[in-house]
Structures are given as C-alpha cells and as structure tokens.
C-alpha cells in the first residue's frame, strides 16, 4: 500500500522539504498541498524509470560528507593562495584514474565531489574501460592524486552504493 502511494519516499521527502522551505510556513493548508505535490511528483519521477538506488551504509555516508566539506575548505584556501601569490604559473595537467566503481549513483556522487572541490575537475568517464579522466590545477605528484581519490572517495562510495 505504502509502496504504491509513495514509490520513491526519498525523492518525495526532499520535494516536500523544498516546498515547505520555499513557502516559509507550516500551516495545515501548505502542508497538505506540499504532501500532494510531493506524492504526485514522486510518481512522475517513477515514470522516468530511474535505476534503483540503495544506500547501504548511512553512517559512512555522513562521515564521507563531513570529510568532503573539510576537503572543500582546505582546497578553497589552496586555490585562493595559488591565485593571489605574485607571479609564477602553476603546473597543471590531466590525470587518468582507473576505477572499480560502476554504480551510476556512486559515479554521480564522485563527479559532484571531485568537481565541487576547487582544484580538481571531472572531465570524462569511459564506462567500458572504467577509466576516469580528471584535470588537476596544481599537479605535483600524479600518483599521489590517484591514490588520494581512490582511498579517500572511491573506497567509501563503493561501500555505500555497491
């Protein structure tokens, strides 16, 4: 019964939250309209036939999020210093990383993490050869970057999504 009315509870929950935040009220009418909109759009989302997402390890997901926030702050400062320091150009380049991760949601999360961190950007992913191409602004040690991404981000994502 619940499955039929609410096929995508996570999606509907986020939609309801966004609705309430935008309306800035918790009046019963707003709440009712929000629930209706969230349920309707949740069903519409099901029509797109999204691949099934399973989050296996919620505490690890929270820890990964905290780690990513810390990394974003640190690389923000690093990139700001690279921009502000007088003269001297940085050496940057492309790096290819071979991945074990194949889950589409895991890959999407990895793309968001890598691109949101200033200094690295996701360029291309070859799903048949499982090779990821990224561009790094301050490329000193290629192997260190590869190890960093595989250890800090790919390992937890594998455990969470796959």
């Amino acid at each position: 019964m619940i499955r039929r009315c609410l096929p995508h509870p996570l999606m509907s929950g986020f939609l309801l939250l966004a609705w309430l935040l935008l309306q800035r009220s918790l009046a019963p009418a707003t709440l009712l309209a929000g629930v209706l909109v969230a349920m309707g759009l949740g069903r519409a989302f099901g029509k797109l036939r999204p691949p099934a997402a399973r989050i296996r390890n919620v505490p690890l997901l929270v820890r990964l999020l905290l780690r990513v926030m810390g990394d974003i702050v640190r690389s923000n400062l690093a990139v700001a210093w690279l921009v502000l320091r007088p003269g001297g150009q940085v050496r940057s380049g492309f790096v290819s990383v071979s991945l074990e991760l194949t889950d589409p949601y895991g890959l999407a999360a990895l793309a968001c993490i890598i691109t949101s961190t200033p200094g690295t950007i996701w360029v291309d992913h070859d799903s048949t050869r499982r090779v990821l191409l990224i561009h790094v602004l301050d490329l000193v040690d290629e192997a260190a970057w590869i190890g960093n991404i595989k250890r800090r981000y790919e390992r937890p994502l594998l455990e969470i999504f796959q």
């Binding site: 990139v79 700001a80 921009v83 200033p118």
Partner: peptide, 24 residues
C-alpha cells in the same frame, strides 16, 4: 578571489577551477 583567478590564470583548463571558489 575566484573571479580574479578567472582573470589571472593563463589557459582555459586552469581558469575552469577558479569559479568553484565562489560557488562553494
């Protein structure tokens, strides 16, 4: 600082990194 990087860095692939400062 992000927009300044957009102006100061030399080639496109370096400049792409700069606006992320403003968006994060």
């Amino acid at each position: 600082v992000g927009s300044l990087g957009l102006l100061r860095l030399r080639d496109f692939y370096k400049r792409v990194h700069a606006p992320t400062l403003g968006t994060t």
